[in-house]
């Protein structure tokens, strides 16, 4: 038999076998030196490809680039409704709903053990003085007393909105949607019970 003659198995079939570990032809493949040599070649190519990807990622990870991407995103992100601010009779000042919600999230996330999920302003925020309710979904870390967390969150959100908006907040509704296991190594400033 001519040793250079192909055993007839295609690279397609061998690649699929390498990926899935399944082939109706596996008895041949496992016993054919030619197939084994080609499989070895495909395997080292695959490993080399992963090395190349890692090198590429390292090169692509410039901090300056990420910062500029994030800055551009901020310009594009949804702003929501316009909320009037009292700027006196001659001025029309507004802030966006997106900015207010971001503020509420920041307040919540800085409290120990709390992670804000969905957050909505209910009411006609575009009309100055209209009553507005703030609805917040919260997941907490295991070990926190929920009524205490809710009360802390309510006061912190109200205080923040009082300073940074002219919204007439009539209620801050907190709904607990989940309890998470403690994060590894995360330090909490709240008081686990």
């Amino acid at each position: 038999m001519n040793p250079t003659e192909s055993c007839g198995r295609s690279i397609e079939d061998l690649s699929d076998y390498l990926e899935t570990g399944i082939s109706t032809d596996f008895v041949h493949i496992e016993n054919c030196p030619q197939c084994q040599a080609r499989l070895a070649g495909l395997r080292s190519l695959g490993a080399l490809a992963q090395d190349l990807l890692h090198d590429d990622i390292a090169t692509a990870s410039e901090a300056g680039w990420l910062d500029s991407v994030v800055a551009n995103l901020r310009l594009e992100t949804r702003a929501g409704r316009s909320i009037p601010l009292d700027g006196g009779a001659l001025d029309t000042l507004t802030e966006t709903e997106g900015a207010v919600i971001a503020m509420i999230r920041a307040v919540g996330d800085s409290l120990g053990g709390v992670l804000i999920g969905r957050c909505r302003l209910a009411g006609d925020v575009t009309v100055a003085g209209a009553p507005v309710e703030v609805n917040i979904d919260v997941s907490t870390q295991y070990g926190y007393r929920l009524p205490t967390v809710a009360q802390e969150l309510r006061s912190a959100v109200l205080a923040e909105l009082l300073v940074h908006s002219d919204l007439n907040v009539v209620a801050v509704n907190v709904a607990f949607t989940g309890v998470r296991a403690p994060l590894d190594g995360a330090v909490d400033e709240g008081e686990p019970q």
């Binding site: 991407v69 995103l73 901020r74 997106g98 919600i101 971001a102 996330d109 999920g117």
Partner: peptide
């Protein structure tokens, strides 16, 4: 849900 900070974290 519109949280820019969460999306930025995914971006990073």
């Amino acid at each position: 849900d519109g949280d820019v900070a969460a999306f930025e974290t995914l971006t990073r």
